[in-house]
Design a protein around this nucleic acid. Structure first.
Lengths: 175, 175
DNA sequence: TTGTGGAATTAACCCAAGTTAAAAGTCATG
DNA sequence: CATGACTTTTAACTTGGGTTAATTCCACAA
């Protein structure tokens, strides 16, 4: 079976308003979410209340907690809608089962996970090797569309710095 | 076929001395390496010659450049032996092919990639959310054995700081 | 035993980013 | 258009970690 077909059969539709949560840090939500429209953010909240943004999720991409879905542990991050969202929801277990019995689905999952791995490696590289300023420059260069979708506050939290810090970086680059 | 069998049939043995490279940043090495014994490090070298360590690879784990193997791009990091190593080498393409035709192998790959994804997410979390000091404390707590295997210099480069910085952190924690 | 070379520590100085707080800008809503 | 709630900028001060260089510590070889 094609992955698309599988999703059409097994997925359910869901709409959410801006501000609504799909799951929160600590939850055991074992769903995968496919974004049809809207915008979401995945973020960590530290013990002292500081927010760090893991990623923004745009239409066409997917998100879910691997920790909760595959490892059976509480999710390490929260997932919230920044804009009204239309989603397709799939149970991780259903897809995982299908990957065990259907070669076409298994192949699609392998490709998805390989692509996912590369994305994670890129993010790891940026956080390990680049300065905040370089990360900002790279963001402006590679995905400028994000800049119009979220506040600067959120860009900063994605880059791993504070809004004040990002404001200073912008000033530095402008001169 | 079991993944183990596949590796036994398709893998080739390789031994390397400390200091020898398996590939260098920029290479298009499309091999996967399974570590039987020894110790390796994967690291990025920045334009101004600074080293940042992506990971240490211990016996029982695997490594290869996803960028080179799957995306066909130059590897973003180098892979070098820190101790003499016994390795099994596998061509990524062979394994990928096999995953397309053999359900058991495909299942094993899916599990491997899911585990890999979780590891990358943990590292991403640490780099995004924790201070260098917290990252060091977590390392001491979770994988203290590493501390005896590599120099403090290398621990520092793995944590994303300089050896001088790490020395200060240790002093701070000792008092 | 004594060099010798790398590893780790320490010191002095510097800078990027954090923190706090105030000011200025932006925008939606009554 | 006025109010209030954010968002962004700016300023002043603090701090963690970088840089450079000197010093101390080892381990190992001659």
């Amino acid at each position: 079976m094609k992955l698309n077909e599988f999703i059409a059969i097994n997925g359910t539709s869901l709409t959410k308003e801006a501000g609504e949560y799909l799951f929160r840090q600590g939850d055991h939500d074992q769903s995968l979410y496919i974004v049809k429209s809207g915008l979401l953010k995945a973020y960590y909240l530290s013990a002292d209340g500081k927010e760090n943004i893991k990623s923004f999720i745009l239409p066409g991409s997917n998100i879910g907690s691997l920790m909760a879905s595959y490892a059976g542990k509480p999710s390490t991050f929260s997932l919230v809608c920044l804009k009204p969202c239309e989603l397709t929801v799939l149970q991780f277990a259903a897809l995982y089962e299908a990957s065990r019995t259907d070669a076409e689905i298994s192949a699609a999952i392998v490709d998805f996970l390989l692509g996912f791995g590369i994305k994670k490696e890129v993010r790891e590289y940026e956080l390990l090797c680049l300065s905040a300023e370089d990360r900002y420059k790279k963001l402006v260069e590679n995905t400028p569309e994000i800049l119009n979708l979220v506040t600067q506050n959120e860009i900063a939290r994605y880059l791993g710095i504070t809004p004040v810090g990002l404001s200073r970086i912008k000033k530095r680059l402008a001169s």
